[in-house]
Design a protein around this nucleic acid. Structure first.
Lengths: 237, 237
DNA sequence: ATATATTTTTAGGTTAGTCTAAAATTTTGT
DNA sequence: ACAAAATTTTAGACTAACCTAAAAATATAT
């Protein structure tokens, strides 16, 4: 009765949990967050897990049995406290490894997602702790996403979309709501980086694109789609 | 037909290969090395994979079909060139991550094995390359084992057991042939570390234990078993 | 040299996580 | 408000990797 190395003990309840289960819980957390706490649907999960709805249904039954999710048939799911703790543990590891990849190994922010998807499942409390210290306890990952703390608490952030900011209001770029390499590389090309200063000077009547002032210096236009996926904060005095 | 994340493309032949298959190939490599190129038996593999002989037989059939091993029923196995390349890739990652854990995160050499067993399966050529550079291209891991190069070549080393060294011959401690935490901690307590100087002053008639001079300074006795598992090299002039 | 012991393989079964096809439920549009 | 469309679940199958029990092959010991 060998215990496979893709099974590990959850820190929450000492049950065995697999890579696959961890992945589902992580995705449920992120989708719940994205849709303001609403239930996540089977089809959404199928899309994000790259499987079929039927497979998701099976897994939801299993996760519900283990009390990681609240599940009423046909009504979508939310995480229980136990499920959320597991999800946050995985997300913490994912984001810490992303910091490692960028800060220590010199990867670009567009290259790290797939590697972090693997590293997030490495199971060692001590490793996570030491990695966190080695990185000097970062609070945000290279995309500006907050890193949950060791106790399983996600810091709350209050970012706004650039598209919601009034004209001529100076803001700081804090994050992105899309992580695709194409989007991130597109930002790189225009030197839009985390921490840069942005000001919306105009919104074009023609195509709703945004005329920006970057770092009080450079004028450029970005598409409406870009503006909706840039997360910013008003200058803290 | 989702492709699981515990399957990845082998660099050798573009076939899909699982964690489990990688593990078998790694273990076959290490056992073949330990027993001077002799075939590895089903029972040996069962012991090291923590499974039953019947399960090993199944896997051997599968690995033989994929041409990773040379397998004649009842006669044990050796690796093919393709199998060896995969094994060396895994061992390279294992040993690089061990260096990382000790040199960058401050783990003890007795604490790293289980974590490296997980990290060795992370699949990213670029990550391995950058990690290697970050660690300044180490040639040996924290136990003194040589690290295969990126081309899949294992450096040859010529270590001798301390138990094979003539009396009063000064040698340098280069490695250990057992990696158990208990053994490594035992060495720590006596300050026997990689790179230290050793000289056998006497072998006790009473219990065949070894009287040593450590760093031309400290006298101590170690058991015969310890002496047989210390790998050393005669001072290179 | 042959009987006995050991090792290895085969046969038949289990579980996790996937699939397709069909049935059940919910949502949408008029 | 009900028919049609969309979503979700169930039923039945498949594969990888494991298991136990039994059969086959090899090694050992007198």
């Amino acid at each position: 009765m060998a215990i496979f190395f893709n099974y590990r003990l959850s820190t929450v309840d000492n049950q065995l949990i697999s890579f696959t289960e961890e992945n589902y819980l992580k995705i449920i957390y992120l989708l719940t967050e994205r849709y303001n706490g609403n239930e996540v649907s089977t089809n959404q999960l199928a899309e994000h897990t790259q499987t079929k709805a039927a497979s998701v249904s099976d897994m939801l039954r299993k996760l519900a049995e283990k009390n990681y999710i609240n599940y009423r048939k046909y009504q979508g799911v939310t995480l229980t406290e136990a499920g959320e703790q597991i999800a946050l543990g995985v997300i913490r590891k994912h984001r810490l490894w992303e910091v490692f990849l960028v800060e220590k190994l010199g990867f670009g922010w567009d290259e790290i997602h797939d590697i972090a998807e693997q590293l997030e499942h490495i199971d060692s409390k001590e490793l996570t702790k030491r990695l966190d210290d080695f990185l000097e306890n970062p609070k945000f990952d290279p995309h500006g996403d907050p890193i949950p703390d060791a106790k399983g608490k996600m810091p709350s952030v209050s970012y706004l979309k650039l598209s919601e900011i009034p004209l001529n209001q100076s803001v700081v770029m804090m994050g992105v709501s899309v992580h695709s390499p194409a989007f991130l590389q597109h930002l790189d090309k225009q030197q839009i980086t985390l921490g840069c200063d942005l000001k919306v000077l105009e919104i074009s009547d023609f195509d709703k694109s945004y005329g920006l002032l970057l770092n009080n210096d450079i004028r450029l236009f970005v598409s409406n789609e870009v503006a909706r996926n840039l997360l910013v904060q008003v200058q803290n005095s």
